[in-house]
Design a protein around this nucleic acid. Structure first.
Length: 554
RNA sequence: GCGCCCGUAGCUCAGCUGGAUAGAGCGUCUGACUUCGGAUCAGAAGGCCGGGGGUUCGAGUCCUCCCGGGCGUACCA
């Protein structure tokens, strides 16, 4: 389905219907194409425009402008929806919304109150968003931040579109990573109690490892030197790190609904079942002691190992089983959020799920490009193992959770994000997030003053009094909000919501400079108060979807 | 080598899936309230949209070939 943003959908439907009716009169035999209505870039071209006349020039054997005129004169401009229809440029038809229609729509938004913007696109859809999914080998880093914030924000916007959303964190506490981690903790422990321990090759060097080792020592004493105590270190490492991770997420306004341990897929036989199903389809074979998946059948250059000759599965096998598990749990849609480095696994998983007879269409992926950390003016290479990373907690200590979330969301997921630590730190007052928050706080301040000075009542608000350019611009922005949410939910690109909120805040600030509330005619003052009430709702709701606070004072 | 992503103002990035004169923030320069919050607003400067071909009424957007970055391309996760 083609869906254009920035056009109020009711208006869009109305215009389409009008144009179709005109076309049926003009050319009864014509196969009417999908009519696109868009918002022109320049306000001079009206509030909405269509290019049908240009696209139909060939089919109708007429020049676009002539067609456009014929359509335009068959459209009723006195219906209440629009106040003008014009033909312009090479054959565009431009429409202008009527003041009364805008006032009516604003009134609808006003009555919706804090619910304004909620949609029904995904109502009755159960959706799972899986994100973060970092194995418990260390604190979350700035690198994980983009994943976490994107996943949570997309979950929020899907909820606003009516979806029933579950946030899930998938982890593996049984693989090689965890063994190395455990060995690292144990080595630090042994060193602490004065034993001559060799630090494992490629072990985790962060200070948090030493802290966990210290904790084990405090709780269990100095006698865990034998190999038989390894489980204690493992458990301490996993639990300690997971606690940190959950706290970090909570600080960022993120709360998971479920944690899924990869291990359950082994325990409940899912792994064996997948291998069995793939074997039935003759997509699996043994070679060199390993079990291979015939990914060449799906256009890949090489087949892929599912079970190593050591008998240990690669991560791809549980990944397939896990996604089948999601579908079996009944989700209508299962979204994965992962970084560009995992892109290669996605086709294998989809192919595996499909081959096992499940509907892989229900799986969707959001791939985001890497975050380049810039520190002291130069790129900063990070590695969890080497412990030369910046943790999310450190970042939030410096700039706060709101700024952190905003930075990760302000760019399209598909583009590389440059996160300049120094800039974020010194951002302070000029930070873009404050522009939005300030607009909200400023409106709240005005609303407080109105309550102090007037006996404000919304019983008989007359929004048709709002005719100033700045008022009309703000109203139009406000009316775009529900469509922006729908669009963001479909495209899963939260930066579009940010751009919109920026435009909205700009429209408000402009209004503020041009139009006063205190001291003008009371009916007008009340209408403006109503307008600002809705503007504040949109800012608060928009920021809420981004997981960012909307302060009343700052 | 092959696959995916990216290349737009000095810097960081938008650009509504092919529309009209390519935008914003930061930075630079110039202006603006004796009343609602100057964390604001108005204006200026700044561009061969990496480059060449092509597709059509129309290309930053689509196809192709180069150039330049990132990430994959493991019996690592």
């Amino acid at each position: 389905m083609k869906l254009k943003i920035n056009i109020i959908s009711a208006m869009q439907d109305y215009l389409k219907q009008q144009i179709e009716a005109a076309l049926r009169q003009l050319a009864p035999d014509l196969d009417i194409p999908e009519i696109t209505i868009e918002k022109p870039r320049s306000p001079e071209h009206g509030d909405a425009a269509t290019n049908v006349a240009l696209t139909l020039a060939k089919a109708l054997k007429d020049n676009p402008r002539s067609i456009a005129h014929k359509i335009a004169e068959r459209i009723d401009a006195t219906s209440g929806y629009i106040r003008s229809v014009d033909v312009a440029g090479p054959g565009f038809i431009n429409f202008r919304f009527s003041d009364s229609w805008l006032a009516d729509q604003l009134s609808v938004a006003y009555r919706a109150g804090s619910e304004y913007g909620k949609g029904c696109l995904l109502v009755n859809k159960s959706i799972q968003v899986e994100f973060v999914s970092a194995n418990p080998t260390g604190p979350l880093t700035v690198g994980h931040g983009r994943n976490a914030v994107l996943g949570d924000t997309i979950a929020r916007v899907l909820e606003w579109a009516g979806g029933d959303v579950q946030r899930e964190y998938y982890f593996n506490n049984a693989g090689r990573q965890m063994r190395v981690l455990t060995e690292s903790v144990r080595a630090r422990y042994l060193q602490a109690v004065g034993k001559d321990a060799e630090f494992p090759e490629g072990g985790y060097e962060g200070a948090y490892i030493t802290e966990i080792a210290e904790k084990v020592r405090n709780e269990n004493g100095d006698n865990l030197t034998g190999e038989e105590h390894i489980a204690i270190f493992r458990k301490a490492a996993e639990e300690g790190i997971f606690e940190d991770i959950k706290q970090t997420l909570a600080r960022m306004n993120i709360s998971m609904d479920s944690f899924f341990n990869e291990n359950t897929l082994y325990e409940d036989g899912s792994i064996d079942k997948v291998i069995g199903l793939l074997r039935e389809k003759r997509l699996v074979y043994e070679e060199d002691g390993a079990t291979w998946f015939k990914t060449t059948e799906f256009g890949k250059e090489k087949d892929t190992v599912l079970i190593k000759s050591s008998g240990e599965p690669t991560y791809r096998l549980p990944d397939i089983a896990y996604h089948i598990n999601k579908i079996e749990r009944g989700f209508d849609l299962a979204i994965d959020v992962f970084g560009a480095d995992h892109i290669a696994t996605y086709p294998d998983v989809v192919a595996g799920v499909k081959a096992c007879g499940f509907d892989s269409e229900k799986i969707d992926v959001i791939v985001y490009q890497f975050v380049t950390i810039v520190k002291d003016g130069k790129p900063f290479k990070m590695s969890t193992r080497k412990a030369n990373f910046v943790t999310l907690d450190e970042l939030m200590d410096e700039v706060g959770a709101d700024v952190t979330r905003f930075f990760f969301l302000m760019r399209a997921p598909g583009t590389h994000l440059e996160f300049d630590i120094d800039e974020a730190k010194q951002a302070g007052e000029k930070n873009p997030v404050f522009y939005l928050q300030y607009a909200h706080a400023r409106i709240q301040s005005i609303l407080r003053k109105v309550r102090e000075n007037y006996d404000y009542s919304d019983k008989s608000l007359d929004f048709s009094l709002l005719n100033h350019d700045s008022e009309v611009t703000l109203i139009k922005r406000i009316l775009e909000f529900p469509d922006i949410i729908t669009q963001t939910a479909i495209q899963r690109e939260p930066h579009k919501l940010i751009n919109y909120l920026n435009d909205l805040a700009t429209a408000f600030h402009k209004f503020y400079h041009d139009c006063r509330i205190l001291g003008v005619d009371e009916q007008l003052a009340f209408a403006r108060t109503g307008l600002l009430t809705v503007a504040a709702v949109v800012l608060a709701n928009g920021l809420g979807i981004l997981g960012i606070s909307a302060p009343d004072r700052m």
